[in-house]
Write a protein that binds this DNA or RNA. Structure first.
Lengths: 201, 201
DNA sequence: GGGGATGTAGACAGATCTGTCTACACAGGG
DNA sequence: CCCTGTGTAGACAGATCTGTCTACATCCCC
């Protein structure tokens, strides 16, 4: 595998990412990360002084990786600044259909541990803030912009959770999650038009 | 405390509920449940043959308790069948402001463990199905009814997650979560009117 | 050739977790 | 009076987890 060629620290981080994301934090022991990334215990502790340090590094890495993917997917699905929320659904459809999809790592770790490890919650809030900023960019400038962006972000998180609950279900896939998201995004896009055109019935 | 008077099984279940909900499943050891509910180990294992059995019992109990609260809160905030989604926001506001609020137990356990314990996912899906049915009851009968109910349910789950991320934040409370939910619910209620009146611009 | 950085293998301590087991207490009904 | 059901206290086995430590191997640059 190509992973074996990479430097030790990166190999650890990539392995930890896959295991933490798939199985959860507490369910993943350090020994498993060490075995799976084919390094020794000493090497591991040279790069990460503790499991907590690895968890924080995992979150930073996941954040960068997810945000990069998100921007790229939106681009690929025709997102343009100020032109509406619709590409969000197409981008997320891509994610939800990925076989390793298991929800949002930041929602998951908050659900699992709250702020048991200091700093985790702040990272999660920061992640959601960055997602919000990207969503806001899709909306035209108006007084209601951030209100609508927040609403869209809530809808996105709801759809992620719904897809996560659906995804393990036999054959149902994530259709309801996506359809529901589209319904909400359309309604929000319409209310943008209504507010910019001042045409509220 | 009044808890001490209750029969052993109920005492165990109530204690486990509080600990599981607050700290998560894996973070809560059996020993802690036993110590906190002031019973002995033998008594515990008489009522629950394993930790998994306790987890499943916790989920059943939590389901009944939450659904009962949900119905009651909607009633108290003026929900009437077919008359719109608005009371949802008021009911959830009540929950979010509860100091022990830590999100949806079913979203949390799915985030933490997926389906590592057989049966858990099915219970979570069942819970969300029941929530959906209650939400659908707020909407008037129409072709779009279940589509809109699903969208509202996704918005509710999104708001729950948002409130959970906000709630530990200093002083910000759950304002954005609730405001976002209201924006979505209003947009959905409006699209009900539009579809029933056939007045799509 | 020598030294430092980087690596491996694996034993170990100490903690924690689940689940079982022994030994004992006590109340109520036949 | 004794038996059964229900309870307590706590030792224990066996597993697993984090983090440390020793002893040894390799490689690259000076």
């Amino acid at each position: 595998m190509t992973l074996a060629d990479k430097p030790a620290r990166e190999r650890i981080l990539l392995t930890a990412h896959d295991l933490f994301y798939r199985d959860g934090i507490r369910a993943t022991g350090i020994d498993k990360v060490i075995a799976e990334s084919a390094i020794s215990k000493v090497t591991f502790y040279r790069y990460f002084p503790s499991k907590n340090a690895l968890i924080l590094a995992f979150l930073e890495y996941r954040h960068r990786r997810w945000i990069d993917w998100f921007n790229d997917a939106l681009q690929r699905h025709g997102a343009k600044p100020g032109e509406g929320l619709r590409p969000l659904a197409a981008a997320l459809a891509e994610w939800f259909s990925n076989p390793v999809f298991r929800g949002c790592a930041f929602i998951n770790i908050t659900a699992e541990m709250g702020d048991a490890i200091p700093g985790v919650l702040a990272i999660c809030q920061h992640h959601k803030q960055d997602m919000l900023a990207i969503i806001a960019d899709l909306l035209p400038d108006s007084a209601a912009r951030m209100t609508l962006a927040n609403a869209a972000a809530v809808a996105v998180d709801g759809a992620i959770v719904k897809a996560q609950l659906e995804s393990t279900q036999v054959n149902t896939k994530t259709k309801v999650a996506l359809q529901s998201l589209e319904v909400i995004l359309d309604a929000l896009d319409k209310s943008v038009l209504a507010s910019t055109n001042a045409q509220v019935p």
